[in-house]
């Protein structure tokens, strides 16, 4: 198991390196010279030249990439143009808000989606199954920003149960959690539908398997058959789906952070793009990429922990 985990994390390092190369190539081909953009239209050619050599832009491309790569490994993602602060610090300041938002969205989708999918599979064809089916498709079909706006109107404005904007008082966990409910629901509710559909389908398939018939023939209680013999297998595709889904959730977080006026990576990137603050965009994208790759590595490790066949195929 440990061997598998190490191998999988090693693979993640390779994936991040490739992603960094692509990110670097993207910066390189963006029209406009970063030095002249930074200095503005009234800079003299000599000033631009001086900044170019200070930024290393006059070096061959592979030297530039090596510098970018190794300074990123050291945690140096460059300096923010406007304030002169290190980009990594700026990004890390915002990161916890987005992580909390995504963790909240995953909690909603797992805590609601998996039980709903199980119930639908057990009651297949019945009334409950049909209601869950219709609701699932409905929440998948509605875009998350529509849910964000309507949940704001209902729960924050009309009922006044939950706060509308912001991330809560710093240091007050209760207030922060309250502020998290609506935005994470807005991102997660579509995933509740996806996961309920997914769990239902794989649960139905697993319950038909002959080892489930064996378990029944040995008189095991139906609850144990469902939740420990079948769900353990039926959950596997859902974990992969969630791992990949975290990418989509990060992009939904941009909407949620703007609608709910929350700090976070999404809002940071949105604002950085609008003022062409490229080092922040690059840094935030890189940090998000690492986050995505790590989450997927963990998804695979969880799958390996649940499924011995995956473990042995790697050893």
């Amino acid at each position: 198991m440990l061997q598998y985990a190490l191998k999988r994390l090693g693979l993640s390092v390779v994936i991040v390196s490739v992603a960094m190369a692509m990110l670097f190539a993207m910066i390189y081909v963006i029209p406009g010279d970063p030095a002249s953009v930074a200095l503005g239209p009234r800079a003299t050619p000599e000033m631009v030249q001086a900044l170019r050599s200070r930024m290393g832009l006059d070096q061959p491309i592979w030297v530039q990439f090596a510098r970018f790569y190794f300074s990123a490994l050291r945690g140096d993602l460059g300096i923010e143009i406007l304030s002169g602060r290190p980009v990594l610090g700026v990004v890390f300041e915002q990161l916890p808000f987005t992580l909390a938002l995504i963790a909240g969205a995953i909690s909603w989708s797992v805590l609601l989606g998996i039980p709903l999918g199980c119930v639908a599979a057990i009651r297949r064809g019945g009334f409950v199954d049909r209601v869950i089916g219709v609701l699932s498709v409905a929440v998948i079909a509605v875009p998350s920003f529509v849910i964000a706006i309507y949940s704001l109107l209902i729960f924050a404005v009309a009922l006044q149960w939950l706060p509308a904007i912001g991330a809560g008082e710093p240091g007050n966990l209760g207030s922060q959690l309250k502020h998290l409910i609506l935005p994470s629901l807005a991102i997660g509710v579509g995933w509740v539908g996806y996961i309920a559909r997914m769990v239902r389908a794989s649960m139905l398939e697993t319950l038909e398997a002959s080892h489930i018939r064996t378990a029944r023939a040995f008189g095991l209680p139906e609850s144990r058959i469902t939740y420990s013999y079948a769900l353990r297998i039926a959950i596997l595709p859902t974990i992969t789906l969630l791992g990949v889904g975290v990418g989509t959730m990060v992009s939904s977080a941009v909407f949620a952070e703007i609608v709910f006026a929350r700090p976070g990576i999404g809002k940071l990137v949105y604002e950085a793009i609008s003022v062409r603050n490229y080092p922040v965009v690059t840094g935030a994208v890189l940090v998000t990429t690492v986050f995505f790759v790590v989450v997927n590595a963990f998804a695979d490790i969880i799958i390996a922990a649940l499924d011995p066949r995956v473990r042995s195929s790697f050893s």
């Binding site: 080892h211 040995f218 297998i233 011995p308 066949r309």
Partner: peptide
């Protein structure tokens, strides 16, 4: 399983894989 036990045809699929 206690009084009446069964062995099925397909040994590959009869045991829970996980």
């Amino acid at each position: 399983g206690q009084k009446i036990a069964t062995v099925f045809q397909d040994p590959m699929g009869a045991l829970n894989p996980v």
